Lab assay of single mutants.
Amino acid sequence: RHRTTFSPVQLEQLESAFGRNQYPDIWARESLARDTGLSEARIQVWFQNRRAKQRK
């Protein structure tokens, strides 16, 4: 699998969602996937990585 590159618009949507809830449930992730055009799995990994980045 190649590395996913996120567009500025996608990142804005993801960061906005992260600001509201750092642990989105499956319904929120699937909604974000539809809105961004990404797969739910990529959304899930993005949130995992974003939480790890915040802990540093």
Rank of each mutant, 00 (worst) to 15 (best):
R1G: 12
R1A: 15
R1N: 14
R1P: 14
H2Y: 08
H2M: 09
H2P: 06
H2N: 10
H2A: 10
R3K: 14
R3A: 11
R3W: 09
R3S: 15
R3Y: 04
R3P: 15
T4R: 09
T4E: 14
T4Y: 15
T4F: 12
T4W: 10
T4G: 11
T5R: 04
T5Q: 10
T5V: 11
T5I: 11
T5W: 06
T5K: 07
T5E: 10
T5C: 05
T5Y: 10
F6L: 11
F6D: 10
F6C: 06
F6T: 06
F6H: 08
F6N: 04
S7H: 04
S7I: 04
S7L: 05
S7R: 02
S7Y: 15
S7N: 07
S7E: 04
S7A: 06
P8G: 13
P8I: 04
P8C: 04
P8K: 13
P8D: 07
P8W: 03
P8F: 06
P8M: 05
P8T: 11
V9C: 14
V9T: 12
V9F: 12
V9W: 08
V9H: 14
V9I: 08
V9S: 14
Q10A: 08
Q10K: 03
Q10M: 06
Q10D: 04
Q10V: 13
Q10F: 00
Q10E: 12
L11H: 09
L11P: 00
L11C: 07
L11I: 11
L11Y: 11
L11F: 03
L11T: 09
E12A: 10
E12I: 09
E12G: 09
E12K: 10
E12D: 11
E12R: 11
E12M: 04
Q13A: 11
Q13C: 15
Q13F: 07
Q13I: 07
Q13E: 10
Q13R: 13
Q13N: 10
L14T: 02
L14Q: 00
L14I: 02
L14H: 00
E15W: 02
E15L: 05
E15R: 05
E15I: 03
E15V: 05
E15G: 02
S16I: 12
S16A: 13
S16D: 10
S16P: 00
S16C: 11
S16E: 13
A17L: 04
F18H: 00
F18P: 01
F18R: 00
F18K: 01
F18N: 00
F18A: 00
F18V: 02
G19N: 05
G19K: 12
G19D: 06
G19M: 14
G19S: 14
G19Q: 09
R20M: 09
R20A: 10
R20N: 10
R20P: 05
R20S: 08
R20H: 06
R20I: 09
N21R: 02
N21D: 10
N21T: 11
N21F: 04
N21I: 04
Q22M: 07
Q22I: 03
Q22R: 07
Q22G: 05
Q22E: 14
Q22V: 05
Q22Y: 02
Q22D: 05
Q22K: 05
Y23R: 09
Y23P: 03
Y23S: 08
Y23E: 12
Y23G: 01
Y23T: 10
P24N: 05
P24H: 03
P24M: 12
P24S: 10
P24Y: 05
P24F: 04
P24K: 01
P24W: 10
P24G: 11
P24E: 04
P24A: 12
P24R: 02
P24I: 06
P24C: 05
D25I: 00
D25E: 03
D25K: 02
D25P: 15
I26G: 08
I26Q: 14
I26F: 08
I26R: 13
I26D: 14
I26H: 14
W27C: 15
W27N: 14
W27F: 12
W27T: 15
W27G: 14
W27M: 14
W27P: 14
W27I: 13
A28I: 04
A28H: 15
A28P: 05
A28D: 04
A28T: 13
A28K: 10
A28S: 10
R29S: 03
R29G: 01
R29L: 09
E30S: 14
E30Q: 12
E30V: 12
E30Y: 13
E30H: 09
E30I: 12
E30G: 09
E30D: 06
S31V: 12
S31Q: 04
S31K: 15
S31D: 09
S31H: 09
S31F: 07
S31C: 15
S31P: 00
S31T: 10
L32G: 00
L32K: 00
L32H: 00
L32W: 02
L32Q: 00
L32E: 03
L32S: 01
A33K: 07
A33Q: 03
A33F: 00
A33S: 10
A33V: 06
A33R: 05
A33T: 08
R34P: 01
R34E: 04
R34W: 06
R34Y: 04
R34L: 12
R34V: 08
D35L: 14
D35H: 14
D35W: 08
D35P: 02
D35Y: 08
T36P: 01
T36M: 11
T36Y: 02
T36L: 13
T36W: 04
T36H: 01
T36F: 09
G37D: 05
G37L: 03
G37Y: 02
G37H: 05
G37F: 04
L38E: 03
L38S: 08
L38W: 03
L38Q: 05
S39H: 09
S39N: 14
S39W: 01
S39L: 04
S39I: 04
S39G: 07
E40L: 12
E40S: 10
E40V: 11
E40Y: 05
A41I: 04
A41M: 08
A41Q: 13
A41R: 10
A41W: 10
R42P: 04
R42L: 13
R42I: 08
R42A: 15
R42H: 14
R42G: 12
I43C: 01
I43M: 01
I43G: 01
I43V: 10
I43Y: 00
Q44K: 13
Q44V: 10
Q44A: 13
V45L: 14
V45M: 13
V45A: 15
V45F: 05
V45N: 11
V45K: 06
V45Y: 03
V45I: 15
V45H: 09
V45D: 15
W46V: 02
W46C: 02
W46K: 00
W46P: 02
W46T: 01
W46Q: 01
W46A: 02
W46R: 01
F47N: 01
F47W: 06
F47A: 01
F47I: 03
F47T: 01
F47D: 00
F47L: 04
F47S: 01
Q48G: 07
Q48D: 14
Q48E: 12
Q48F: 05
Q48M: 07
N49E: 14
N49I: 04
R50H: 09
R50F: 03
R50N: 04
R50I: 00
R50T: 04
R50C: 05
R50L: 01
R50M: 06
R51C: 06
R51G: 01
R51S: 04
R51K: 00
R51W: 02
A52N: 04
A52L: 13
A52Y: 10
K53N: 05
K53R: 11
K53L: 14
Q54K: 06
Q54C: 10
Q54P: 05
Q54T: 12
Q54H: 07
Q54M: 09
Q54V: 07
Q54D: 11
R55F: 10
R55V: 10
R55Y: 14
R55L: 14
R55A: 10
R55C: 15
K56Y: 06
K56I: 10
K56Q: 15
K56T: 07
K56D: 15
K56F: 05
